[in-house]
């Protein structure tokens, strides 16, 4: 090994290393494995779903572009029923999770913060698959709630208990999302209730603001951006997750992800473009929500500066 490098000292050696990769390209190099994963699987997956929804099935040699899959999808009453159901589930679960989550955060902040936060965090860790099982065992016509109702003399039997799982409205799905996601919103809201927020609330109290007034004009505006961002996450999840509606919903009408998989698993491969059309609709819906999330987050960081 040549001496000169050593003789010029360690800083030069560092330079020698740096010289291998120009400084400008280093972030790209560092990012390349992650971008490869995201590029191939995510961007590639979305692109393939779009292409296949337009009739370009790989390895089948089709060359015609067409909107037939979208036309067939939108013309199908089953799809329209499914879109209505999906939107209902998204709006109700997100709304309930947000309102309950904020209420829980306010409650937890005042009482026994440590143990209750841990309890909420444990709920977050429960896989949705297990959550769906729990809600099923609790709310099905012969479930635990119905048994308690019978014991208390409120319910005459399974037939008398309201249909809350595998129902047409989607109550079971909404219950599961709310049970799992309200703690998520609560954890985010708690994290945003910093000592700074508390100081401002104290100041408002000194100025004579009542409890409700303090909440609406001090606390809520301060925690709104992160809570809204969390709600966006809840909404996009509710729109695009498969297991919960598959287990707690009906096969007709089913939410969009269930419809996508039903079409994908149809033994008529010619239905696959329709599966891809539904998948594309879900992806677009979610990506719009991602953009909304990023906007909220950037507004939040500007505010905190």
């Amino acid at each position: 090994m040549s001496q000169p490098v050593v003789s010029t000292g360690p800083t030069t050696r560092q330079h020698a290393v740096r010289r291998g990769v120009p400084e400008r390209l280093r972030p790209l190099l560092l990012l390349s494995p992650a971008l490869l994963v995201v590029g191939v699987f995510f961007v590639g997956g979305v692109a393939q779903a779009v292409l296949q929804s337009l009739g370009r099935q790989p390895f089948l040699g089709q060359t015609d572009w067409s909107f037939d899959a979208y036309r067939a999808t939108f013309a199908d009453p089953a799809f329209r029923a499914s879109l209505t159901l999906t939107l209902r589930v998204v709006v109700l679960s997100t709304g309930l999770a947000t309102v309950l989550g904020v209420a829980v955060a306010l409650l937890v902040r005042r009482h026994a913060r440590g143990p209750l936060t841990t309890l909420l965090q444990s709920t977050l860790a429960v896989p949705h698959l297990v959550g769906a099982l729990c809600i099923g065992l609790l709310l099905s016509p012969s479930g635990f709630a119905s048994r308690l109702g019978t014991g208390a003399g409120l319910v005459d039997g399974p037939q008398d208990f309201p249909v809350l799982t595998n129902d047409a409205f989607g109550w079971g799905i909404i219950a599961e999302y709310t049970w799992k996601e309200a703690p998520f919103v609560a954890v985010v809201a708690l994290a945003s209730m910093t000592p700074h927020v508390r100081d401002l609330e104290g100041a408002a109290r000194v100025l004579g603001a009542g409890r409700w007034r303090r909440f609406t004009s001090v606390t809520l505006p301060l925690i709104a951006p992160p809570v809204a961002a969390a709600s966006v996450l809840v909404a996009s999840f509710a729109a695009a997750s498969y297991e919960v509606p598959r287990l707690l919903g009906q096969s007709f009408p089913a939410t969009l992800p269930v419809v996508a998989l039903q079409r994908y698993q149809d033994t008529d491969l010619l239905v696959r473009p329709q599966a891809m059309a539904v998948a594309t609709i879900i992806a677009v819906l979610s990506l719009v929500l991602v953009a909304a999330y990023l906007t909220l987050v950037s507004r939040l960081s500007r505010r905190s500066l």
Binding site: T267, D268, L269, L270, V271
Partner: peptide, 8 residues
């Protein structure tokens, strides 16, 4: 569906 697969 056994929806006919002749096309396929």
């Amino acid at each position: 569906r056994s929806a006919v697969l002749s096309g396929l």
